[in-house]
């Protein structure tokens, strides 16, 4: 199932030519040797995948920080991410949830 976290780590892995399994939510961008320009590049990769701009004044230290920022933007603006939300709905249905 795609999540914002998995989309983010896949983008990061693509950038760093490595596997997404090397990261955890608490991984800091600094520990990966990434600076503010790298983060800007990562945001472009993510924006291409998500289809909306990721603008925030919040400090981004860890992968989870960025996930939270993206989720907040989604919530505020009511943006759906097909890969994430459709899968979520399907999972909810399979689990007998009330979605749909």
């Amino acid at each position: 199932m795609a999540t914002v976290y998995s989309l983010l780590t896949e983008g990061l892995a693509e950038r760093l030519c490595c596997s997404p399994s090397e990261f955890t939510p608490q991984t800091t961008f600094a520990s990966l040797g990434l600076d503010s320009l790298d983060l800007g590049e990562l945001l472009i990769i993510l924006e291409n995948r998500l289809g909306f701009e990721i603008e925030s004044d919040r400090k981004i230290g860890t992968i989870q920080d960025l996930v939270d920022i993206i989720e907040n933007i989604r919530k505020k603006r009511g943006i759906r991410i097909p890969d994430v939300d459709d899968n979520k709905n399907a999972d909810d249905k399979n689990a007998g949830g009330s979605a749909g």
Partner: peptide
């Protein structure tokens, strides 16, 4: 070069 050096 390290992998991120190559990317940038």
């Amino acid at each position: 070069m390290e992998r991120n050096e190559v990317a940038r």
